[in-house]
Design a protein around this nucleic acid. Structure first.
Lengths: 195, 195
DNA sequence: CCACAACTTGACACAGTGTCAATTGACACA
DNA sequence: TGTGTCAATTGACACTGTGTCAAGTTGTGG
């Protein structure tokens, strides 16, 4: 339905994403994005009301392209809770690096910018639902370890899988993404699955 | 030895800390700190070369006051690796909330400011040593679960105990600090200690 | 040809950091 | 009594980046 003639908005989003990926998410300025798109800085404001607005739109746009839903199909289809947990961790672990550079500015702005905070928290809440689903499946199978209840286990899984943790493991600890996934599957099993 | 007559530096640090605690660490401006101290904004620069410099000095100063070393004595004195791990988690868990409001701006600046990043990473490295010591003690007792080696287990413990995670558990998940400590002791036991 | 939309140019307000120069007041020493 | 010096003050200013405003240009469709 959104087939308006001027694809300028899309050009901006693509420019924004590619500049984010080049620069590694550090202070990307409106001027840079405008230049990359080939329009004036002011024209950006004809399409996005603020820098944050643009950043948020970019991650949403990237999300669509990457089709998170398709990636989670596997997890949702899992027979047992244990399988569901593992494949959720795996899907998420493969997803993070793809959105990371684009999501990072949002992560940064989050601490100072109202709108960024709302946008990020919205996305993380969605991710939390996946965690909850996995934990619930485990619970239904009577495989959720006894020291947890659904809420606390969801909290813990959600936190464990946070982007900040992924960042720490892969950037500071030097883990490869595969190591990250393997270790996290192992950890979550140990933590949540009763023997 | 540092008994210089003008305690202005200390007055600044105290003002900075108290304003940080009041405001919850959100955008604290040099002007605010100056006003609180009762001196001109420019005078701050006679004592600290930049905002970051001041922020870093504040956390160091608070650290001294809180005497982290004394708090860890218990952990270091522990007989077994298992005890050591638990008391380390506990000491750290009691420590975070006390430094949090002051450390938070540093945490924020970290993403954009070179110096803040260095300062923070320095502190986290020190914390990591505690993690490593606990894991090593466990290893020495032959109690480190077989899927870990010292490095990877230290990485995992270190990440699990990160301030960002504490933030997520206590602010977003609504855990009390006691719940945080209890759960983390339980989690770390489950994760690292072999049965 | 008119109208409208998308865009351009240039100027500007606003915050907050950091710098600079000239000045004041207090104390020390001699 | 003067001289040096240290801490701090005042006021002005440069810089960066966001967001706003006004006036003008270009192109397309009715």
């Amino acid at each position: 339905m959104n087939t308006e003639k001027p694809d300028t908005r899309h050009r901006i989003l693509n420019a924004c994403i590619s500049i984010l990926e080049e620069q590694g998410g550090k202070g990307v300025r409106m001027g840079d994005i405008a230049k990359k798109t080939g329009i004036s800085r002011q024209a950006l404001y004809l399409h996005f009301s603020s820098r944050t607005d643009l950043l948020v739109a970019s991650t949403r746009y990237l999300d669509e392209k990457l089709d998170i839903d398709a990636r989670l199909a596997d997890s949702r289809a899992a027979q047992t809770g244990i399988q569901r947990l593992s494949s959720y961790v795996k899907a998420w672990g493969n997803y993070i690096p793809e959105i990371y550079t684009v999501a990072k500015p949002l992560l940064i702005e989050q601490d100072t910018d109202q709108a960024a905070e709302a946008a990020w928290s919205d996305r993380m809440q969605a991710m939390r639902e996946g965690c909850e689903a996995a934990i619930s499946a485990l619970h239904r199978d009577n495989k959720l370890s006894s020291e947890w209840n659904t809420k606390s286990a969801t909290d813990a899984l959600w936190t464990l899988l946070s982007v900040r943790n992924w960042e720490q493991f892969t950037q500071l600890c030097g883990w490869s993404n595969q190591q990250y996934i393997d270790h996290l599957i192992c950890m979550t099993n140990r933590l949540f699955v009763s023997p």
